[in-house]
Amino acid sequence: MKYIDLDTVNKRMTTRILINKLVKYLFLAATLFGLIVLAVLLYRVFADTIGWLNLDFLTNRLSTIPENAGIKGAITGTLWLMLIVGPVTMILGVGTAVYLEEYAKRGRLHSFIQTNINNLAGVPSIVFGLLGLTVFVRVLGFGTSVIAGGLTMSLLVLPIVVVAAQEAIRSVPGFLREASFGMGATKWQTIKNIVLPAALPGILTGTILALSRAIGETAPLVALGIPALLIPIPSGIFDNFTALPMQIYYWTLDSVLVDEYANLAAATILVLLIILFLMNSVAIILRNKFQKRY
């Protein structure tokens, strides 16, 4: 008597091997799908960009005439926006994270705040735009200036920074804190000298990723009412501004009026993608360099 019925095993063998292979290609296809779409997108952007992305395009001011149009104003506007969003989210975000991780007692209030921060991360960006329109543009009277746009964007990406900073602070090993307390340091001295320096790479990575989210957001700026034609270059935080995604949005819509606007939009997309790529690279380098120090 045989313990293994070879016939049955052989019969099922072919199907099992077949399914095994099939599943492999299924997952490969799932992976390729996204990549192919990205490749098509990049191909179309590059094809439309040829002949349009040059130094003049980067240094010229905005114009309704495609040959004269440039994105110096949009680039400057985006940089000003980042100068607001970066420090504001970092100060508020790290402050929140330090409070929640180091000071707040674990309890109902703590989990209530925690849940709401997570909920906030899921609120659609247009809602933040409308909030910004009411509070910063109208009530505080900032108009459609850099500071109004920057504060709106800061609120939008704040939850990302808070969560990233919390994780960074949580990953600082307890023995470091205990050693510090053992040396007679106060809580604030411990946070300032031990916890924050150790958590800083994680915090910076989170902040940069949040910035790269903010840099590409269009909906909140549309809600604020950023003008479609704004030629002067912003020189301060109370100046009106336009940003790269706004220019992409308006040029894409207006390509029904002037065909060449589609090329301008493509060139702007490429510039935005390059900026995003650089920022994400910095975030990855930071993360890899400082990972697992303890």
Binding site: L83, G86, G141, V146, I147, S235, I237, D239
Partner: peptide, 25 residues
């Protein structure tokens, strides 16, 4: 450096108000 940059921005911004300003003032 980032924090100092913000401080610098806000002082520069104050001058900006005098030049062009928001819609209201």
């Amino acid at each position: 450096a980032m924090v100092i940059a913000t401080a610098a921005c806000s002082s520069g911004g104050a001058e900006g108000t005098e030049q062009s300003g928001g819609n209201n003032n």
